[in-house]
Design a protein around this nucleic acid. Structure first.
Length: 595
RNA sequence: UGCCUGAUGGUGUAAUGGUAGCACAGGCGACUUUGACUCGCCUAGUCAUGGUUCGAAUCCAUGUCGGGCAGCCA
């Protein structure tokens, strides 16, 4: 996935400055690079989540702001964990998240384009095929570089900087020492270059079983930095790879593959999270040891986003999926991009949030309220107001004839500069929210109560006359009088009552199902005690019956709605059918009364 | 007890030797045919101790506390 940035009159909004952007800006001022190139390199072993959104916005954002390019690259060097399903999901998620930036040309390369190995100054060099814009574009794959990577390994061996080691995984561990105790040299460390070349070639040829041998960098077994204690570069794995099939039985490890993939793609700024700080010395060592002809990339690290009330570890999210605690990776309660998308969260809100958290070098827990605020800010301006009643109770307006229909005008979005309206029908029988009636009201209850008055939004004020119950004492209906002269345009239209509630005509409403989501966990740091499963919020999903105003029959998956006084809702893209719309609640409205 | 790295209101951040600011959250009030939105006001902070300096969140020293690193994972 790479696309040249053609520049645009629609310049990106000024991004808040941060220490990485400051570094890039300085490099641009120095004209250190011909073009700024970044990359977003997920391993396709799971779905992208909100933490990745930050890395995506950072990398694609920096490229965009500097007229550069950002590559979506599958960091697929471990075939045992990776699947095509994940590759496809990652592509879809990235496309969704940066869709609003697509005109700025980011990240995909021409379909089928492969890097081309060249020789420059007697050394192997590498050129990416032409980059292009969508459609038909595809992401980069680290596995596309297996051949040149193998050649670089050979070069390292020839320089005496790498050797084939026969130590078992267990012994390798043993020899590595510990943080406060130096390691000791492998007995195979001083093999001749010829032997190493022979052995490594045979490793590639498949002569040895898994883990029988490995290729290691020859650095320093006593280094205080553990990652410099002769780290493994290649391991033997007789397993098919999702992208390269059975072409290889040796696979490079992250540290070897990553820096060289960056180099091959012409990446200038390789931005990753803090846990790789210790790896930077190795990143540089490999690149420098190879004495490469072109400008080298450099690694910069930032603190990952840790949102409250959820978990983002792929391994643990997988547990939620496998143990069916959620319905799948795209369950609307999941912090995955696909889950958030299905829940109805706009990509723009996610971008607004992650950009707003800033970029620093210290870990921090981000308040869930900050995310919710970003979502409401987006949705408040863009969503269509509609009336929908959850857990309905029936109200009979006794002074209306059974077939009487009173047309009322409702505003579609009061935030619009010139708001449009639609017609809704007031009929003798309507539904109201059961929460909007209390037989024994708490203090300061503004809604419907015995002897009380309340306004039906966009219609008129009603007065409660009688509460009808069945033999068992269960509420059957509320009998009220409609004060028709309090409608808009009538003499008493300005009459004030404390409460205004929403409603839907019983005759015209659409009965359906609405899914109410809440936080998946009931504590801010679910895994603080290592037992996240015990903190799952049992009320994170509630399915309720609802009645929707008739215009919602034409609801579209891409539209966002605010059910007035309830929150923001969107059609569930999976479970909605023409016969039955299913709405997901993306988020409630802010509710100061609930406190 | 090795190496790396960090510390600013409750939370997230800005200030790059010169008035500690912004946002979220919280509180009070105004407005309101959404207890929403919007608007106004308020609460609250530089880890500690020294030093350099006319002046320190920023530079230096020491300490304290936190995070990361010992996969043939990324």
């Amino acid at each position: 996935m790479t696309v040249e940035n053609p520049g645009s009159s629609d310049a990106p909004a000024p991004a808040p400055s941060d220490f990485i952007r400051d570094i890039v800006a300085q490099h641009v001022a120095e004209k250190r690079y011909a073009k700024i190139v970044t990359r977003f390199p997920p391993e396709p072993n799971g779905y992208l989540h909100i933490g990745h959104a930050k890395a995506i916005c950072l990398n694609f954002g920096i490229a965009r702001e500097n007229n550069g390019q950002c590559h979506l690259r599958m960091d697929d060097t471990n075939p045992a964990k990776e699947e095509v399903e994940y590759v496809d999901a990652i592509i879809a998620d990235v496309n969704w998240l940066i869709a609003g930036w697509a005109d700025h040309a980011l990240g995909f390369k021409a379909k089928g384009a492969k890097p081309v190995l060249e020789v420059r100054d007697g050394k192997p060099d590498f050129q990416i095929g032409a980059v292009t814009s969508l459609p038909g574009a595809e992401p980069f794959f680290a596995s596309d570089y297996f051949a040149p990577l193998y050649d670089y390994a050979l070069t390292l061996i020839k320089k005496g900087k790498a050797y084939v080691c026969d130590l078992s995984p267990k012994d390798t561990d043993e020899y590595r020492g510990s943080p406060d105790r130096p390691g000791k040299d492998s007995p195979f460390r001083d093999r001749s270059i010829a032997d190493n070349l022979d052995l490594f070639t045979r490793m590639k040829a498949g002569e040895f079983p898994d883990a029988a041998r490995s290729l290691r960098a020859k650095i320093d077994m006593a280094s205080p930095n553990i990652w410099l204690r002769d780290p493994l570069l290649y391991r033997i794995r007789h397993v098919a790879h999702h992208h390269t099939g059975n072409a290889w039985c040796i696979y490079p490890l992250y540290d070897f593959a990553h820096c060289l993939s960056d180099y091959l793609e012409g990446v200038t700024h390789s931005i990753c999270t803090l846990e790789f700080v210790d790896h930077r010395a190795l990143y540089d060592w490999i690149l420098e040891s190879l004495e490469l002809p072109r400008t080298l990339p450099h690694q910069y690290e930032f603190a990952k986003l840790i949102p409250g009330y959820t978990i983002v570890s792929k391994r643990k999210l997988l547990v939620l999926v496998n143990e069916k605690i959620v319905s799948g990776w795209d369950d609307p309660r999941m912090p995955t991009l696909s889950g958030l998308r299905r829940r109805g969260i706009p990509a723009s809100a996610l971008r607004r949030f992650v950009i707003g958290t800033g970029v620093t070098k210290h870990d921090s827990l981000t308040d869930a309220a900050a995310f919710e605020h970003a979502i409401r800010e987006e949705l408040n301006t863009s969503s269509l107001r509609r009336l929908a009643v959850l857990r309905p109770i029936k109200v009979v307006l006794t002074n209306l004839a059974p077939d009487q229909v009173i047309e009322c005008e409702a505003t579609n979005n009061p935030q619009d500069e010139i708001p449009t309206t639609r017609k809704i029908a007031l009929t003798r029988e309507v539904f109201i929210e059961s929460d909007d009636f209390a037989e024994i009201p708490p203090p300061k209850y503004f809604r419907l109560k015995p002897g009380g008055e309340v306004r039906l939004k966009y219609a008129c004020i009603i007065k409660l006359d009688e509460i009808v119950k069945d033999a068992a004492g269960k509420l059957v209906e509320l009998r009220c009088t409609a004060e028709l002269d309090t409608r808009a345009g009538f003499p008493n239209s300005t009459k004030k009552v404390k409460g205004t509630i929403h409603w839907v005509s019983a005759a015209q409403g659409i009965p359906t199902e609405v899914r109410l989501y809440d936080r998946l966990f009931n504590v801010a740091e679910p895994d603080a005690d290592g037992d996240f499963k015990s903190h799952v919020n049992p009320q994170s999903l509630e399915v309720v019956t609802a009645v929707l105003e008739p215009s919602l029959a034409g609801a579209r998956v891409d539209d966002r709605y605010q059910f007035e006084r309830l929150g923001y809702f969107a059609l569930d893209p999976k479970d909605t059918s023409p016969a039955k719309p299913v709405f997901n609640r993306s988020l409630t409205l802010k509710d100061t009364w609930a406190k």
